[in-house]
Nucleic acid binder design. Structure first.
Length: 383
DNA sequence: AAGTCGGGGCA
DNA sequence: TGCCCAGACTT
Protein backbone atom coordinates (compact mmCIF):
# COMPACT_ATOMS: atom_id res chain seq x y z
CA UNK A 1 0.00 0.00 0.00
CA UNK A 2 1.69 3.18 -1.18
CA UNK A 3 1.90 5.82 1.45
CA UNK A 4 3.67 8.51 -0.53
CA UNK A 5 1.93 10.82 -2.85
CA UNK A 6 4.78 11.57 -5.20
CA UNK A 7 6.04 9.28 -7.97
CA UNK A 8 5.85 5.76 -6.76
CA UNK A 9 5.55 3.78 -9.94
CA UNK A 10 9.16 2.64 -9.72
CA UNK A 11 8.82 1.69 -6.07
CA UNK A 12 7.97 -1.86 -5.18
CA UNK A 13 4.79 -2.08 -3.18
CA UNK A 14 5.42 -2.68 0.50
CA UNK A 15 4.28 -6.03 1.74
CA UNK A 16 1.84 -6.50 4.57
CA UNK A 17 4.80 -7.23 6.82
CA UNK A 18 5.93 -3.65 6.31
CA UNK A 19 2.67 -2.22 7.61
CA UNK A 20 4.35 -0.70 10.64
CA UNK A 21 6.65 1.46 8.55
CA UNK A 22 3.80 2.60 6.34
CA UNK A 23 2.03 3.96 9.40
CA UNK A 24 4.91 6.20 10.30
CA UNK A 25 5.30 7.45 6.74
CA UNK A 26 1.60 8.18 6.63
CA UNK A 27 2.14 10.53 9.53
CA UNK A 28 5.02 12.16 7.72
CA UNK A 29 3.19 12.90 4.49
CA UNK A 30 -0.41 13.10 5.67
CA UNK A 31 -0.45 16.83 5.05
CA UNK A 32 1.10 16.57 1.58
CA UNK A 33 -1.50 14.11 0.45
CA UNK A 34 -4.34 16.00 2.08
CA UNK A 35 -3.35 19.31 0.50
CA UNK A 36 -3.06 17.71 -2.94
CA UNK A 37 -6.44 16.07 -2.51
CA UNK A 38 -8.05 19.30 -1.35
CA UNK A 39 -6.76 21.28 -4.31
CA UNK A 40 -8.14 18.74 -6.75
CA UNK A 41 -11.26 17.39 -5.06
CA UNK A 42 -12.11 19.71 -2.18
CA UNK A 43 -14.68 22.47 -1.97
CA UNK A 44 -13.66 25.85 -3.37
CA UNK A 45 -16.87 27.81 -3.82
CA UNK A 46 -18.47 28.11 -0.40
CA UNK A 47 -19.58 31.70 0.28
CA UNK A 48 -16.86 32.27 2.88
CA UNK A 49 -14.03 30.89 0.80
CA UNK A 50 -11.75 32.80 -1.56
CA UNK A 51 -11.27 35.59 0.94
CA UNK A 52 -8.65 36.47 3.51
CA UNK A 53 -10.98 38.83 5.30
CA UNK A 54 -10.83 37.66 8.93
CA UNK A 55 -14.25 39.17 9.59
CA UNK A 56 -15.94 37.03 6.98
CA UNK A 57 -13.98 33.96 8.00
CA UNK A 58 -14.75 34.52 11.67
CA UNK A 59 -18.45 35.04 10.99
CA UNK A 60 -18.67 31.82 9.01
CA UNK A 61 -16.76 29.82 11.61
CA UNK A 62 -19.03 30.94 14.43
CA UNK A 63 -22.13 30.12 12.43
CA UNK A 64 -20.72 26.75 11.46
CA UNK A 65 -20.19 25.68 15.06
CA UNK A 66 -22.43 22.64 15.44
CA UNK A 67 -24.37 23.74 12.39
CA UNK A 68 -24.36 22.34 8.89
CA UNK A 69 -23.20 24.22 5.83
CA UNK A 70 -26.55 24.24 4.03
CA UNK A 71 -28.24 25.69 7.11
CA UNK A 72 -25.65 28.43 7.50
CA UNK A 73 -25.54 29.74 3.93
CA UNK A 74 -28.72 31.89 3.98
CA UNK A 75 -27.91 33.24 7.45
CA UNK A 76 -24.40 34.13 6.38
CA UNK A 77 -25.75 36.11 3.44
CA UNK A 78 -28.25 37.96 5.63
CA UNK A 79 -25.59 38.85 8.19
CA UNK A 80 -23.11 40.12 5.63
CA UNK A 81 -25.76 42.28 4.00
CA UNK A 82 -26.80 43.81 7.33
CA UNK A 83 -23.35 43.87 8.95
CA UNK A 84 -20.73 44.19 6.18
CA UNK A 85 -17.85 44.70 8.61
CA UNK A 86 -16.91 44.26 12.22
CA UNK A 87 -17.42 47.93 13.07
CA UNK A 88 -21.01 47.85 11.82
CA UNK A 89 -21.71 44.76 13.85
CA UNK A 90 -20.12 46.24 16.96
CA UNK A 91 -22.38 49.30 17.04
CA UNK A 92 -25.59 47.43 16.19
CA UNK A 93 -28.19 46.77 18.89
CA UNK A 94 -27.82 43.24 20.21
CA UNK A 95 -31.53 42.69 19.57
CA UNK A 96 -30.92 43.19 15.85
CA UNK A 97 -28.25 40.51 16.00
CA UNK A 98 -30.59 38.16 17.84
CA UNK A 99 -33.36 38.77 15.30
CA UNK A 100 -31.09 37.83 12.39
CA UNK A 101 -29.78 34.81 14.30
CA UNK A 102 -33.23 33.47 15.20
CA UNK A 103 -33.60 29.90 13.95
CA UNK A 104 -29.89 29.09 13.95
CA UNK A 105 -29.85 27.89 17.55
CA UNK A 106 -27.17 28.08 20.23
CA UNK A 107 -28.05 31.71 20.87
CA UNK A 108 -25.07 32.27 23.11
CA UNK A 109 -23.15 32.31 19.87
CA UNK A 110 -25.06 35.41 18.77
CA UNK A 111 -24.41 37.24 22.02
CA UNK A 112 -20.74 36.30 21.91
CA UNK A 113 -20.59 37.33 18.26
CA UNK A 114 -21.72 40.79 19.23
CA UNK A 115 -19.40 40.93 22.24
CA UNK A 116 -16.50 39.74 20.10
CA UNK A 117 -17.08 42.44 17.51
CA UNK A 118 -17.02 45.05 20.25
CA UNK A 119 -13.84 43.56 21.70
CA UNK A 120 -12.14 43.63 18.30
CA UNK A 121 -13.04 47.29 17.90
CA UNK A 122 -12.21 48.36 21.42
CA UNK A 123 -9.22 46.18 22.21
CA UNK A 124 -7.68 45.59 18.78
CA UNK A 125 -8.43 48.79 16.91
CA UNK A 126 -11.00 47.13 14.69
CA UNK A 127 -8.65 44.50 13.27
CA UNK A 128 -8.76 40.84 14.26
CA UNK A 129 -5.53 39.68 15.95
CA UNK A 130 -3.46 37.22 13.91
CA UNK A 131 -2.33 34.80 16.59
CA UNK A 132 -4.21 31.75 17.77
CA UNK A 133 -3.64 32.74 21.39
CA UNK A 134 -5.12 36.21 20.99
CA UNK A 135 -8.01 34.97 18.90
CA UNK A 136 -8.86 32.35 21.50
CA UNK A 137 -9.16 35.09 24.11
CA UNK A 138 -12.12 36.59 22.30
CA UNK A 139 -15.71 35.65 23.23
CA UNK A 140 -17.03 32.62 21.39
CA UNK A 141 -13.66 31.69 19.90
CA UNK A 142 -12.14 28.52 21.32
CA UNK A 143 -9.03 26.62 20.36
CA UNK A 144 -10.41 25.05 17.19
CA UNK A 145 -12.16 28.13 15.84
CA UNK A 146 -9.08 30.23 16.59
CA UNK A 147 -6.99 27.83 14.54
CA UNK A 148 -9.45 27.93 11.67
CA UNK A 149 -9.45 31.72 11.55
CA UNK A 150 -5.70 31.98 11.99
CA UNK A 151 -4.94 29.46 9.26
CA UNK A 152 -7.46 30.76 6.74
CA UNK A 153 -6.93 34.47 7.30
CA UNK A 154 -3.29 34.62 8.32
CA UNK A 155 -1.68 31.39 7.15
CA UNK A 156 -0.88 30.34 10.71
CA UNK A 157 0.32 26.79 11.26
CA UNK A 158 -2.36 25.64 13.67
CA UNK A 159 -4.70 22.71 13.65
CA UNK A 160 -8.44 22.62 14.01
CA UNK A 161 -10.17 19.77 15.83
CA UNK A 162 -13.86 19.69 15.06
CA UNK A 163 -16.31 16.87 14.54
CA UNK A 164 -15.05 16.24 11.02
CA UNK A 165 -11.43 16.02 12.07
CA UNK A 166 -12.22 13.78 15.00
CA UNK A 167 -14.00 11.38 12.68
CA UNK A 168 -11.17 11.38 10.13
CA UNK A 169 -8.47 10.86 12.74
CA UNK A 170 -10.40 8.16 14.56
CA UNK A 171 -10.82 6.22 11.33
CA UNK A 172 -7.51 6.79 9.58
CA UNK A 173 -5.37 6.28 12.68
CA UNK A 174 -7.68 3.93 14.53
CA UNK A 175 -8.15 6.12 17.58
CA UNK A 176 -10.36 4.24 20.02
CA UNK A 177 -12.77 5.75 22.53
CA UNK A 178 -15.44 8.44 22.45
CA UNK A 179 -13.84 11.68 21.18
CA UNK A 180 -15.94 13.70 23.62
CA UNK A 181 -14.00 12.12 26.44
CA UNK A 182 -11.21 14.34 27.64
CA UNK A 183 -8.47 11.75 27.41
CA UNK A 184 -9.37 10.81 23.84
CA UNK A 185 -9.75 14.42 22.81
CA UNK A 186 -6.34 15.32 24.23
CA UNK A 187 -4.78 12.47 22.29
CA UNK A 188 -6.44 13.75 19.13
CA UNK A 189 -5.16 17.26 19.66
CA UNK A 190 -1.65 15.87 19.97
CA UNK A 191 -2.08 13.73 16.89
CA UNK A 192 -3.58 16.61 14.90
CA UNK A 193 -0.69 18.88 15.86
CA UNK A 194 1.81 16.26 14.71
CA UNK A 195 0.18 16.07 11.29
CA UNK A 196 0.47 19.76 10.42
CA UNK A 197 2.51 20.58 7.30
CA UNK A 198 6.04 21.61 8.19
CA UNK A 199 7.10 23.83 5.31
CA UNK A 200 3.92 25.27 3.94
CA UNK A 201 2.96 28.54 2.32
CA UNK A 202 -0.06 30.49 3.54
CA UNK A 203 -2.12 28.99 0.76
CA UNK A 204 -0.95 25.50 1.66
CA UNK A 205 -1.99 26.03 5.26
CA UNK A 206 -5.43 27.13 4.15
CA UNK A 207 -5.77 24.18 1.82
CA UNK A 208 -4.71 21.87 4.62
CA UNK A 209 -7.32 23.16 7.07
CA UNK A 210 -9.95 23.15 4.35
CA UNK A 211 -8.87 19.65 3.40
CA UNK A 212 -9.50 18.38 6.91
CA UNK A 213 -12.99 19.82 6.79
CA UNK A 214 -13.71 18.72 3.24
CA UNK A 215 -12.56 15.17 3.74
CA UNK A 216 -14.82 14.77 6.75
CA UNK A 217 -17.75 16.54 5.14
CA UNK A 218 -17.70 14.98 1.69
CA UNK A 219 -15.96 11.57 1.85
CA UNK A 220 -15.37 10.48 5.42
CA UNK A 221 -18.99 11.06 6.38
CA UNK A 222 -20.70 9.34 9.27
CA UNK A 223 -23.15 7.12 7.44
CA UNK A 224 -21.61 5.79 4.25
CA UNK A 225 -18.02 6.93 3.84
CA UNK A 226 -16.81 7.00 0.23
CA UNK A 227 -13.58 5.15 0.91
CA UNK A 228 -12.97 4.40 -2.76
CA UNK A 229 -12.28 8.07 -3.40
CA UNK A 230 -10.28 8.66 -0.23
CA UNK A 231 -6.58 9.47 -0.53
CA UNK A 232 -5.91 7.56 2.69
CA UNK A 233 -7.94 4.45 1.87
CA UNK A 234 -4.91 2.17 1.70
CA UNK A 235 -3.65 3.29 5.11
CA UNK A 236 -6.91 3.91 6.91
CA UNK A 237 -7.35 1.61 9.90
CA UNK A 238 -11.13 1.74 9.65
CA UNK A 239 -11.16 1.00 5.93
CA UNK A 240 -8.57 -1.74 6.03
CA UNK A 241 -10.29 -3.48 8.94
CA UNK A 242 -13.86 -2.70 7.90
CA UNK A 243 -14.57 -0.73 11.03
CA UNK A 244 -15.95 2.46 9.48
CA UNK A 245 -19.16 1.98 11.41
CA UNK A 246 -17.40 1.59 14.73
CA UNK A 247 -15.04 4.53 14.44
CA UNK A 248 -15.27 7.02 15.93
CA UNK A 249 -16.89 5.47 18.99
CA UNK A 250 -20.41 6.77 19.60
CA UNK A 251 -21.38 8.95 22.48
CA UNK A 252 -22.48 6.87 25.47
CA UNK A 253 -26.26 6.72 25.53
CA UNK A 254 -28.13 8.66 28.12
CA UNK A 255 -31.85 9.00 28.68
CA UNK A 256 -33.13 12.46 27.81
CA UNK A 257 -35.77 13.83 30.17
CA UNK A 258 -39.03 15.36 28.99
CA UNK A 259 -40.20 18.73 30.21
CA UNK A 260 -43.61 20.24 29.74
CA UNK A 261 -44.54 23.89 29.50
CA UNK A 262 -47.68 25.91 28.89
CA UNK A 263 -47.47 28.86 26.54
CA UNK A 264 -49.88 31.74 26.34
CA UNK A 265 -50.93 33.00 22.94
CA UNK A 266 -52.51 36.24 24.04
CA UNK A 267 -53.98 37.71 20.90
CA UNK A 268 -55.53 41.04 20.23
CA UNK A 269 -56.60 41.13 16.62
CA UNK A 270 -53.49 40.63 14.56
CA UNK A 271 -51.05 41.09 17.43
CA UNK A 272 -49.70 38.74 20.07
CA UNK A 273 -47.87 39.46 23.25
CA UNK A 274 -44.25 38.38 23.44
CA UNK A 275 -42.02 38.25 26.46
CA UNK A 276 -38.27 38.62 26.43
CA UNK A 277 -36.44 35.67 27.90
CA UNK A 278 -33.51 36.07 30.29
CA UNK A 279 -30.11 36.40 28.62
CA UNK A 280 -28.93 32.94 29.65
CA UNK A 281 -30.59 29.56 29.58
CA UNK A 282 -32.85 28.11 26.92
CA UNK A 283 -33.51 30.56 24.11
CA UNK A 284 -31.53 33.19 26.02
CA UNK A 285 -32.33 36.72 24.93
CA UNK A 286 -35.02 35.71 22.48
CA UNK A 287 -38.63 36.85 22.40
CA UNK A 288 -41.08 34.09 23.21
CA UNK A 289 -44.60 33.50 24.45
CA UNK A 290 -45.35 33.92 28.17
CA UNK A 291 -44.93 30.58 29.90
CA UNK A 292 -46.14 28.79 33.01
CA UNK A 293 -45.47 25.42 34.59
CA UNK A 294 -49.15 24.38 34.54
CA UNK A 295 -52.46 25.46 33.11
CA UNK A 296 -53.75 27.17 36.25
CA UNK A 297 -50.64 29.32 36.48
CA UNK A 298 -51.00 30.21 32.84
CA UNK A 299 -54.60 31.24 33.40
CA UNK A 300 -53.45 33.45 36.24
CA UNK A 301 -50.93 35.10 33.96
CA UNK A 302 -53.59 35.59 31.33
CA UNK A 303 -55.79 37.40 33.87
CA UNK A 304 -52.84 39.50 34.84
CA UNK A 305 -52.27 40.57 31.27
CA UNK A 306 -55.99 41.04 30.74
CA UNK A 307 -55.90 44.03 33.04
CA UNK A 308 -58.36 45.23 35.63
CA UNK A 309 -62.02 44.77 34.93
CA UNK A 310 -61.22 43.93 31.36
CA UNK A 311 -62.82 40.55 31.71
CA UNK A 312 -61.11 37.22 32.16
CA UNK A 313 -59.83 35.90 28.87
CA UNK A 314 -60.96 32.39 28.15
CA UNK A 315 -58.18 29.91 27.44
CA UNK A 316 -58.69 27.57 24.54
CA UNK A 317 -56.25 24.80 23.68
CA UNK A 318 -54.21 24.86 20.48
CA UNK A 319 -52.48 21.85 18.99
CA UNK A 320 -49.62 20.79 21.28
CA UNK A 321 -46.15 20.45 19.82
CA UNK A 322 -42.96 18.70 20.83
CA UNK A 323 -39.52 20.20 20.43
CA UNK A 324 -36.40 18.11 20.80
CA UNK A 325 -33.22 19.61 22.18
CA UNK A 326 -29.86 17.93 22.56
CA UNK A 327 -30.37 17.10 26.20
CA UNK A 328 -34.13 17.08 26.75
CA UNK A 329 -37.48 17.00 25.05
CA UNK A 330 -39.96 19.81 25.47
CA UNK A 331 -43.72 19.33 25.23
CA UNK A 332 -45.44 22.62 24.55
CA UNK A 333 -49.10 23.13 25.44
CA UNK A 334 -50.25 26.33 23.77
CA UNK A 335 -53.37 28.11 25.04
CA UNK A 336 -55.09 30.84 23.10
CA UNK A 337 -56.65 33.83 24.83
CA UNK A 338 -58.47 36.45 22.81
CA UNK A 339 -58.64 40.04 23.90
CA UNK A 340 -61.19 42.37 22.45
CA UNK A 341 -59.50 45.68 22.97
CA UNK A 342 -57.33 47.99 20.98
CA UNK A 343 -53.63 47.45 21.00
CA UNK A 344 -53.22 51.06 21.95
CA UNK A 345 -55.02 50.49 25.21
CA UNK A 346 -52.76 47.59 25.95
CA UNK A 347 -49.52 49.25 25.10
CA UNK A 348 -49.31 50.68 28.58
CA UNK A 349 -49.01 47.16 29.91
CA UNK A 350 -45.80 46.66 28.01
CA UNK A 351 -42.41 47.24 29.54
CA UNK A 352 -38.90 46.55 28.33
CA UNK A 353 -39.50 42.82 28.55
CA UNK A 354 -42.94 42.55 26.95
CA UNK A 355 -44.15 43.67 23.57
CA UNK A 356 -47.21 43.48 21.41
CA UNK A 357 -46.08 42.30 18.04
CA UNK A 358 -48.02 42.05 14.80
CA UNK A 359 -47.88 38.54 13.40
CA UNK A 360 -46.56 40.05 10.19
CA UNK A 361 -43.68 41.70 12.06
CA UNK A 362 -42.15 38.65 13.72
CA UNK A 363 -39.09 38.88 11.49
CA UNK A 364 -37.79 41.88 13.38
CA UNK A 365 -37.86 39.94 16.64
CA UNK A 366 -35.74 36.99 17.61
CA UNK A 367 -38.28 34.23 18.12
CA UNK A 368 -37.37 30.56 18.80
CA UNK A 369 -38.04 28.25 15.88
CA UNK A 370 -40.88 26.21 17.41
CA UNK A 371 -42.63 29.34 18.69
CA UNK A 372 -42.25 30.93 15.29
CA UNK A 373 -43.76 27.85 13.76
CA UNK A 374 -46.68 27.96 16.17
CA UNK A 375 -47.35 31.62 15.45
CA UNK A 376 -47.05 31.14 11.71
CA UNK A 377 -49.73 28.47 11.79
CA UNK A 378 -51.85 30.82 13.88
CA UNK A 379 -51.51 33.54 11.29
CA UNK A 380 -52.52 31.09 8.61
CA UNK A 381 -55.76 30.41 10.47
CA UNK A 382 -56.70 34.08 10.80
CA UNK A 383 -59.67 35.40 8.91
C1' DA B 1 -15.35 15.79 33.89
C1' DA B 2 -19.94 16.76 33.20
C1' DG B 3 -23.62 19.75 31.99
C1' DT B 4 -25.64 23.55 29.15
C1' DC B 5 -26.87 25.36 25.05
C1' DG B 6 -30.97 24.59 18.97
C1' DG B 7 -32.15 23.32 14.98
C1' DG B 8 -31.90 20.73 10.98
C1' DG B 9 -30.20 16.93 7.91
C1' DC B 10 -30.46 12.29 7.13
C1' DA B 11 -30.63 7.31 7.36
C1' DT C 1 -36.67 7.97 15.85
C1' DG C 2 -31.80 8.44 16.86
C1' DC C 3 -27.53 10.43 15.93
C1' DC C 4 -24.58 13.98 14.63
C1' DC C 5 -22.93 18.49 13.04
C1' DA C 6 -16.79 23.89 10.89
C1' DG C 7 -17.71 23.84 19.82
C1' DA C 8 -17.57 27.13 23.56
C1' DC C 9 -18.53 27.98 27.99
C1' DT C 10 -19.94 27.22 32.86
C1' DT C 11 -20.01 24.58 36.97
Amino acid sequence: MPSRLSPRSAQPLPTAAAADSSTSSLTSDFSVRLIAWQRKHGRHDLPWQNTRDPYRIWLSEIMLQQTQVSTVIPYYAKFLARFPDVATLAVAPVDDVMALWAGLGYYTRARNLHRCAQAVVEQHGGAFPASVAELAELPGIGRSTAAAIASFAFGARATILDGNVKRVLARVFGVEGFPGEKKVENAMWTLAESLLPSNASDDDVGAYTQGLMDLGATLCVRGKPDCLRCPFAADCVANVTGRQRELPAARPKKAVPTRRTWMLVLRDGNAVMLEKRPPSGIWGGLWSLPEAADEASLAARAREFGGDGGGVPQLSPLAPLTHVFTHFKLDIEPRLAELDRGVGALAALGDADTAWVALSDLDSFGVPAPVRKLLDSLQGSLI
